[in-house]
Amino acid sequence: MDYQLIWVLLIAFAVFAYVTLDGFDLGIGILFPFEKKQENRGKMMNAIAPIWDGNETWLVLGGGGLYATFPEAYSLLMTAFYIPVIVMLLALVFRGVAFEFRFKSRDHTNHWDFAFAAGSIIAAAMQGAMLGAFIEGINIKDGHFIGGAFDWISPFSIFCASAVVVGYALLGAGWLIMKVDGPLQGKLRAIAKPAVIWMAANLAVVSLMTTYLNPAYGDRWFSTPNIYYLAPIPIVTVGLMFWLWHAVKRREKTVFGITLSVFFLSYLGFGITLFPHIVPPVISFRDAASPDNSLSFMLVGAVIFLPVILGYTAYAYYVFRGKIDDAGYH
């Protein structure tokens, strides 16, 4: 069995699960500055309070899984992204404790609202910047990172950061439009409209820039016959963005689903661009993999546990389905 390929796909799945699940959690934090009412902020937070912890666990699976399966990639990427990773972790600390602290604090609710919003925005921006820097490639020589501490900042990575922040905000808005109603829902729709345009512009810029960053990236998409097979991805994405633009105005449940689909296609495009590199531009996942007996040992666990995890995660979502009532969970 090709354990290396199975694991690179499983890690990719874990990262995608994180991006979408914690994406809408972080998105709600990103939307916080647009809603000043304490009561509504409480509702927004309660829309994710019972599930955010499970969502964030995918981040640990992505990181821990990469450490176990592709240790060289984990080691190189974490070293190259030292500053954005630490900043992201600290942001997640503040934003994570805000879930509990916001409701415990008597006089400082605003402080923890700020921590929640700022933590979410900074964490999302760092993830986006790392995504951009990752696509641009890591400066490696003889298996060691030889770049600088600030290599991850570039115009391209800033564009990616912006794309991720607005993308998460749209996911969050999509989730909330399902979970709340009344004036708050109307307000979210109003915020989501310009976000759709911003996201479309960001996606277009990032996609086109990516194909110019590295001749190999451009070839992957524009060479024949690839272009015929791959053309549906951008075309469907454009179609989805138009549909999203209309759904935002009147639909309740489809906004989240369409945004999710756009994320999926973007992620697929990202994977197609970079495959088989796990540390672009040179290290392929096969060069960075753990020995097969480590990969097969873990695969047993993944085969047993992943379906169970998906099962009880679905159950938790089912228990807390429907609109947030005024009382809230807290």
Partner: peptide, 29 residues
């Protein structure tokens, strides 16, 4: 990390799969 990943990494992966998700998944309920 590079040296220990193939040995300790799987133990931690088992921790995430068998423990962290279980705790987080049922904590909300």
């Amino acid at each position: 990390s590079k040296l220990s990943g193939p040995v300790i990494g799987p133990l931690m992966a088992y921790e995430v799969l068998s423990a962290f998700f279980l705790e987080a998944g049922f904590l909300g309920v």
